[in-house]
């Protein structure tokens, strides 16, 4: 009975997500839109596949359209030169740059961090990312920053290598939400949180099922154990 419970339960979860998607975009979906239009020009998602995006409730057609808009390496052409093709669903989303050297060249020698586990490896997680995105400010006149860095109050040294990535109205949300900077920062961090913990919802739901099952079994065994041991206690004392 437990055996069919799991797949049925997962299917139920999946439909639950899809239904939500039909009503309004989730923060993750809006965050994906920001990622797609803003972040992904510099930041990679080396471990995430296009197909994984169904996890935030994107439709297969939308994911296919996104994949088709991205080029991935595809061996060499007849002249031996590297060639590309539109991405498939099973491809990794990967980097906007062909290699690390070009990524560094385009970013003052720094490598924009990969997003796959950023919300996990960054101390403070997704909330920290949101804070960083919201902590850009005009530089005080008397402050001298190192070249290629930008004033950001989220850091002890008050600067960061990344230029301010977001500004109000930068993207036009499909669901009509006003794309203010705080809104976008919040959505992007929700998306990155999902990227770093893609199974957290499933994990919680299965966990509740497992705990409920064990709780029932514990009660049954406690009754059984008490009944069995009653005999010994009776003669012992």
């Amino acid at each position: 009975m437990k055996r069919i419970f799991f797949p049925a339960f997962l299917a139920f979860l999946a439909t639950g997500i899809c239904k939500n998607a039909a009503l309004a975009d989730t923060p993750q979906q809006r965050g994906f839109q920001v990622y797609r239009q803003v972040c992904s020009t510099c930041h990679s998602l080396d471990q995430v596949r296009f197909a994984d995006l169904s996890g935030i409730g994107l439709s297969v057609a939308d994911i296919k359209a996104y994949a088709a808009s991205r080029q991935v390496p595809d061996g060499v052409d007849d002249d031996g030169d590297p060639k590309t093709r539109p991405a498939h669903l099973s491809d990794l989303i990967g980097s906007p740059y062909p290699n690390e050297a070009m990524a560094r060249m385009a970013n003052h020698g720094d490598l924009p961090p990969d997003f796959s586990r950023l919300a996990m490896t960054e101390e403070g997680g997704a909330a920290r990312i949101e804070t960083i995105l919201r902590s850009y400010a005009p530089k005080p006149a008397d402050l001298v920053l190192p070249p290629g860095s930008y004033y950001n109050t989220a850091f002890a040294q008050n600067h960061i290598g990344m230029p301010p990535p977001l500004h109000d109205g930068q993207v036009k949300y499909v669901d009509g939400t006003a794309a203010t900077l705080p809104q976008m920062a919040q959505d992007v961090s929700a998306y990155l949180d999902w990227v770093a913990h893609p199974h957290s919802m499933e994990r919680t739901h299965i966990g509740l099922g497992v705990l409920a099952y064990l709780a029932v079994l514990t009660v049954l065994l406690a009754i059984m154990k008490r009944r069995v041991w009653k005999r010994v206690k009776g003669t012992g004392s």
Partner: peptide, 8 residues
């Protein structure tokens, strides 16, 4: 119940 749990 134990066997069902093992199957799960």
């Amino acid at each position: 119940a134990g066997c069902a749990g093992a199957c799960a």
